[in-house]
Design a protein around this nucleic acid. Structure first.
Length: 465
RNA sequence: GGGACCAUAGGGUAGCUUGGUCGAUCCUUUGGGCUUUGGGAGCCUGAGACUCCGGUUCAAAUCCGGGUGGUCCCA
């Protein structure tokens, strides 16, 4: 994969994930095939969220006065906000912001909803689009002006410790989610200068793209009582006093799908984990004129059996040569392909081809083939997961001196370095290396790579998207 | 935030330097027809483009300015 950027762009178009030709910078059209993948990805995420959150839906627009209330927060976003200034020809009394994120839409309502400790905790989430006026060059699914799929959670708690625990719960949910998609990740405690604007602290999930740049794919924030104070959210405690609650928020976006495609894909096209493959098994009948009806009826017989067992399966009946079909479904990342032709009909068998390994195996139709196919799908998922984690682990290297960072990290690695924990020193490291500190991986003793003071942390450093 | 490059059918390209030979090249795509089908089929016959606005000129795909969109590099 010589040019990752170009490969990524091509595959999005060729596999008909999105159409990036929509005439507004950074805004793309979801095509049917891409949207189906998005649907199954969301379905899994919502399944996990629904275990302990309620889904809600807030409006798109936020009054200027609400957006502007939280000083640090608004500063973090002010350069990127789209504004609605007119209703028809008439200028609005108050400008309305198109949400860049929803804290300032949701928290004024929290202030109305929360009266007593009995109302707590609140745990909600919504999947919405958000808009950010990105000035840098945009990239489909990775850096966009309209984030079309932003699943954000917001929670409110009595105690700071409960918010801490909720951050851990958020991290646990995202771990399960990314595991189910076979996406590898590193979890970083973001440095103070890279926190979510207004947050006490931020944990972020980063994954590694094939060109060696990392991509932030999820964040989890402890907001402490900062927003509660700003939006005057109070509850009456058991002792009758009025207190500010503590909040968390966490979210992830289209970038999940970007990493899904980028990490598992290969030269032939997409490779989808079975969980989110819109079609898990494609049956290709090899039709000859004299035998066509017999073969087609066998194919639909197989399809019916598999559908009954819950597989997402389809038959490619198009009147084109089989080779073309093979290329098509490989491009689309369908995990398993079944070929059935005259020879197979005679021997009462079919040919199963795996997308991830390209291996072909014969399978007798008199056996319990649904359970064989099911074990193939399970194997594909674990193989994708192993491969992806192995790739990322192979590209993490411990680095002892600043001089060596450039060579190692610019070669497509995530560098692990020791750091004293001082902000100025950290920013100095970023400046010297022209890389981004992703955050703390774990605690350790030793000397800081830069200022040589006592190190407190091992941090990751990388080129980022 | 700074800089460089680019824009020709749905996709990829040739033509641009030196304006006229462009009624615009080739591949792919695509409609219709016949023969085919175990890894991108063949033949016949159709379809489809100079990013937008303005300028220079007898004449602009080609030169100039701007908009929009795209790509990459640096901070």
């Amino acid at each position: 994969m010589k040019n990752f950027s170009q490969w990524f762009h091509n595959i999005l178009e060729e596999a008909e994930i999105i159409d990036s030709r929509y005439p507004i910078k950074g805004m793309n059209v979801w095509l049917p095939k891409g949207f189906k993948i998005r649907k199954y990805v969301l379905r899994e995420l919502e399944r996990l969220m629904d275990e302990d959150h309620d889904e809600i839906l807030f409006p798109l627009l936020i009054p200027e006065t609400e957006l502007a209330k939280e000083g640090i927060h608004v500063k973090g976003f002010e350069e990127e906000v789209y504004w609605v200034t007119h209703g028809g020809m008439r200028e609005l009394n108050e400008k309305l912001a198109i949400r860049p994120t929803s804290e300032t839409a949701i928290y004024p309502m929290f202030a109305l909803w929360i009266r007593s400790h009995i109302d707590l905790p609140i745990k909600i989430y919504q999947t919405v689009n958000t808009m950010r006026y990105e000035t840098k060059h945009t990239r489909p699914l990775i850096r966009v002006r309209e984030i079309t799929t932003f699943t954000e959670s917001h929670t409110v708690h009595e105690k700071y410790d409960e918010a801490n625990d909720q951050v851990q719960e958020g991290i646990a949910i995202y771990k399960r989610f990314f595991d189910s998609l076979a996406i590898p990740y590193l979890i970083h405690d973001r440095p103070s200068w890279d926190k979510f604007p207004g947050a006490d602290y931020t944990f972020a999930f980063d994954t590694l793209m094939k060109d060696g740049k990392t991509l932030q794919i999820a964040t989890v924030h402890n907001l402490s009582d900062t927003f509660a104070k700003t939006f005057d959210i109070k509850y009456e405690a058991t002792d009758g006093s009025h207190k500010y609650p503590y909040q968390t928020c966490y979210g992830l976006s289209d970038r999940v799908i970007a990493s899904l495609i980028a990490i598992h894909g290969d030269e032939k096209g997409l490779v989808l984990p079975p969980l989110v493959a819109p079609i898990q098994i494609m049956i290709v009948p090899i039709v000859f004129k004299d035998k066509s009806e017999e073969i087609l009826s066998k194919a639909s017989e197989i399809k019916n059996i598999l559908e009954k067992d819950g597989f997402r399966v389809n038959i490619d009946n198009r009147d084109i040569r089989p080779g073309k079909k093979y290329y098509d479904w490989e491009l689309n990342g369908i995990p398993l392909r079944i070929d059935i032709g005259p020879r197979d009909l005679k021997d009462n068998k079919m040919i199963i081809t795996r997308r991830d390994t390209s291996t072909k195996e014969e399978c007798s139709l008199s056996e319990d083939f649904p359970s064989i196919l099911n074990s193939y799908l399970t194997e594909i998922n674990s193989n994708l997961k192993d491969k992806a984690w192995k790739f990322m682990r192979e590209h993490i290297s411990k680095i002892d001196s600043l001089d060596r960072i450039e060579k190692t990290v610019l070669n497509g690695n995530i560098g692990l370095i020791k750091w004293c924990g001082n902000d100025d020193c950290g920013k100095e490291i970023e400046e010297k290396t022209n890389l981004t500190i992703l955050g703390i991986q774990y605690r350790i003793d030793g000397d800081c790579i830069n200022c040589k003071r006592k190190a407190k942390h091992v941090i990751s450093i990388a080129k980022t998207y």
